[in-house]
Write a protein that binds this DNA or RNA. Structure first.
Lengths: 162, 162
DNA sequence: GGTTGACCTCAACTTTGGTTCAGGTTAAAT
DNA sequence: ATTTAACCTGAACCAAAGTTGAGGTCAACC
């Protein structure tokens, strides 16, 4: 690991799946899984073993960060697909795609805050989301697109004295 | 539906599963599912059909609200289990159990905000969570409980020039 | 009294993000 | 040369929150 031995059988710039697992903190099975999903890629040795470019370390870091932020892997994959294929991504590339997560986080925080405020109102009145508040609405905001069954719910409860 | 016919075969204070579905905006299959999970309960007619008390409408509303707030059904069930079994829950009861969700929401908003701030730092430096930031740490905060593989990740990247 | 729509159960399938296991191969170290 | 550690594939399994379908019953209306 520390000896700069020129006789090592495979490119020193490459990582085995075990190396990548140890250094990324991600299990080997998860790395296989990411590869099946097209999030990372590997070269195969003559013996069919995976070899990863060091760059992959950063990709995996990005995947982990994205997951912490709550982004589904499919979206992470879509973002990774926008990275240049013809060169190693730069810090600027990573900055660009991270920016999208930042906006996503902002939006989710905002949404949760609105939800909390609604809930506060509903706790205040004790009604728990009937007629006076929007919480039973499954859509993001008060349904702009027609009443539907939601309105039935909202209208039905209190008039029934439930 | 509007005729106050005294000859109706079942208690007018009860709802069929279809009624409950229409008025709650929840599908029949989901109501069956909630019942299997013990979140709601029904009486059976002689023909083995479900009949719900009107109170169930509020229970379902609570379930929906909880889901909007991001609470897993198992937790919703645990909360519902704390409602009195010997009487119809009051507004005060509902207020009490909703309060817990409020605190949960606060905590999650706080956590997301911290995450966002970390991400902002990482976007700022372009490093995407290496050594300088906590984002690759899968635990809530910087790992207080030993370094582990995470540290390997964090330490490994930049020194390798990735 | 028959047709139709609503209801019943049970089993299988869906998605997401993996883990675990079985059975077999490769590679590194002694 | 052999042993051991790491690797390979594929299939099965986990949780959550349901949906879908098959096959059969119930009830309300005309």
């Amino acid at each position: 690991m520390d000896a700069p031995n020129p006789a090592v059988p495979w490119d020193r710039d490459e990582l085995t799946v075990g190396d990548l697992a140890a250094r990324s903190g991600v299990s080997v099975s998860a790395l296989h899984f990411y590869e099946r999903k097209g999030l990372i890629a590997s070269r195969r040795t003559s013996g069919n073993q995976r070899r990863y470019r060091r760059e992959t370390l950063r990709r995996v870091a990005f995947i982990r960060v994205s997951q912490r932020v709550g982004i589904p892997l499919a979206d992470v994959g879509a973002a990774l697909d926008t990275l240049p294929g013809d060169r190693t991504p730069t810090a600027k590339d990573w900055r660009r795609i991270s920016q999208a997560w930042h906006e996503d986080l902002d939006a989710r925080i905002e949404q949760l805050s609105r939800l909390r405020d609604h809930l506060t109102d509903c706790i205040g009145c004790g009604c728990l989301s009937l007629r006076r508040c929007a919480l039973t609405n499954p859509h993001d905001e008060l349904a702009e697109a027609g009443p539907g069954p939601r309105t039935l719910l909202v209208e039905g409860l209190e008039q029934d004295g439930v």
